[in-house]
């Protein structure tokens, strides 16, 4: 049981950071972004070039990766999102699909399908919790996720600019009319989302030490589900969603290991996601059925 929890929490941090990026963008713009995974992979390739090929320190590689991903998010907003003819959230969501596909294709084009090796962030010794070997990177991922989840929430509520982001999600036009530069809000949101995608990917403990095209997308799928499970608009909810899926995954791999199910991670995520959506779809109906009939209903 303890093992399941520890193993679950190890992955939870990464899922949660991916989910936070999704929620941040969705909260402020109403757009569901599907490019986070590939933005993250791109960051890993940048780090690979700097650290493995150029032999620079890991931190320099990480800084470079975050710089590139953040700049990419900003460029995406400035060059495309801002200039869209039909700027409804669904079209912008499809636009992010295009971005993800483009980055994925570029990864194949420039690096090919063969795996590239990238060192983990901390080479410090790992330690054991409840019989599970835990590395410093894994602890860092969870700490970063929790700090970001609750820290960002505080920023949104406490600062004028954060309040402006909340207001923008309710009525973007009115935000401009109280004098808050809406373009700055969207720029910050899209680059912030991309930054979080890069960060999430960097926090992945490279279990096999390799990066391939689409590598971070496989984790982002889970992060996206975590964001939906957390309610899509709640930053702490995203962290909770990540923890739920992390533990569900480790429980499944522990108790279903004999069944030898291929792609167990996705099967688990899919099952939890469908269950949550089914509950949400049926909840109003259930509540009505279960509620005691109001007095006088038969009058």
């Amino acid at each position: 049981m303890g093992q399941v929890l520890v193993l679950g929490l190890i992955n939870a941090g990464i899922y949660a950071v991916f989910a936070l990026g999704v929620v941040l963008v969705y909260r402020g713009t109403g757009v569901l972004t599907f490019a986070q995974g590939e933005i993250g992979t791109l960051g890993l390739y940048v780090a690979y070039v700097l650290v493995t090929e150029q032999h620079l320190p890991w931190l320099v590689g990480a800084a470079g990766a975050l710089l590139v991903t953040t700049a990419l998010g900003a460029a995406f907003e400035l060059l495309l999102v801002r200039r869209m003819v039909a700027a409804d959230p669904v079209s912008t969501a499809v636009l992010t699909v295009g971005l993800g596909l483009t980055i994925l294709a570029c990864e194949f084009f420039f690096f090919g399908a063969s795996p590239r090796v990238l060192d983990p962030p901390f080479l410090a010794a790992s330690f054991t919790v409840a019989g599970v070997v835990v590395t410093p990177t894994q602890v860092a991922a969870l700490v970063v996720a929790l700090a970001l989840g609750f820290g960002l929430q505080a920023v949104l509520r406490r600062t004028d600019f954060g309040l402006g982001i909340l207001a923008a999600s309710q009525d973007a036009a009115a935000v401009r009319l109280v004098g808050i530069p809406l373009s700055r809000i969207t720029l910050v949101l899209w680059s912030g989302g991309a930054f979080l995608a890069g960060l999430a990917a960097l926090l992945v403990e490279p279990t096999v030490g390799t990066v391939t095209p689409g590598y971070a997308s496989e984790l982002f799928v889970v992060g996206l589900a975590a964001a939906v499970i957390g309610g899509l608009t709640s930053l702490p909810g995203a962290v909770v969603g990540g923890v739920v899926l992390g533990i569900a995954e480790s429980a499944a791999s522990r108790y279903l290991s004999d069944a030898n199910i291929p792609g167990l991670r996705y099967v688990t995520v899919f099952a939890v996601l469908l269950a949550v959506l089914l509950y949400r779809a049926l909840a109003p109906e259930l509540r009505r059925r279960l509620a005691p009939a109001p007095a006088g209903a038969t009058a």
Partner: peptide, 12 residues
């Protein structure tokens, strides 16, 4: 990928 982005953004 590029074609998709350009279409959505400029010629939906």
């Amino acid at each position: 990928g590029v074609l998709l982005m350009l279409t959505v953004a400029f010629n939906p």
